[in-house]
């Protein structure tokens, strides 16, 4: 065997942020597939809408605007601390990360609580008719993502307090923030379709 030329990589960093990180691809994979699902849910909504003359059908009322809109406000505001948390994580700013993650988390909790009132004000049940089914499906779908991200956030916050604190953890925080942004965007879409859609006829 002749002496081979070599490339020494031992000096390379052991983690990196954003599209350099492997987890970034996992996060975006999630977003791609969940996003596809959401879009298909919304398309199904409009498909079913073409099957009846009135929307919502019969004497049903569209969902009450109040709680949904409150939540719209909450989630839009939550995007700000979320952004701070992301920035902090990319500067390895532990204190900042802790602070802003907790703030975002509180918003998420507030959002989840209001979500209960939202369900009560949808003015339909899932087994009333196809309209009710698709409205509930969209809401439950969004809620599932909301709860998943809340759980993830709790775990990360705990980790940020008990350690071990490593660069990798900050990458995780940054990915979690991207995912929360996705939950925000999802809500914009679901809100527009479920709350505004039926009022635009």
């Amino acid at each position: 065997m002749s002496a081979r030329r070599t490339i020494d990589v031992s000096h390379l960093p052991t983690y990196a942020f954003r599209h350099r990180a492997l987890t970034w691809y996992a996060t975006w994979s999630m977003i791609l597939m969940e996003g596809t699902m959401l879009v298909v849910f919304l398309i199904s909504y409009f498909f079913l809408r073409t099957r009846v003359t009135n929307w919502p059908p019969g004497v049903m009322k569209p969902p009450d605007l109040l709680w949904g809109t409150v939540n719209l406000g909450i989630i839009l505001v939550s995007a700000i601390p979320n952004q701070f948390a992301k920035k902090a994580s990319e500067k390895l700013d532990l204190r900042g990360v802790r602070l802003w993650m907790i703030v975002t988390f509180l918003f998420a909790i507030a959002f989840s609580v209001v979500r209960i009132f939202e369900f009560a004000a949808l003015n339909c049940r899932w087994d009333d008719n196809a309209y009710g089914s698709i409205v509930w499906a969209n809401m439950v779908f969004h809620t599932t993502h909301l709860l998943t991200d809340v759980a993830d956030t709790i775990v990360l916050i705990i980790l940020m307090f008990v350690g071990p604190i490593e660069g990798k953890r900050f990458v995780d925080v940054s990915e979690n923030c991207i995912y929360w942004d996705f939950v925000v965007v999802m809500w914009l879409m679901v809100y527009a379709v479920i709350y505004i859609g039926p009022r635009l006829t």
């Binding site: 099957r51 009846v52 899932w126 008719n129 196809a130 009710g132 698709i134």
Partner: peptide, 16 residues
């Protein structure tokens, strides 16, 4: 759980 996505009698559609 009795949803009606595909039930034509309740505004659903098998074509969906």
């Amino acid at each position: 759980v009795g949803t009606h996505f595909f039930n034509p009698a309740e505004g659903g559609d098998p074509i969906l």
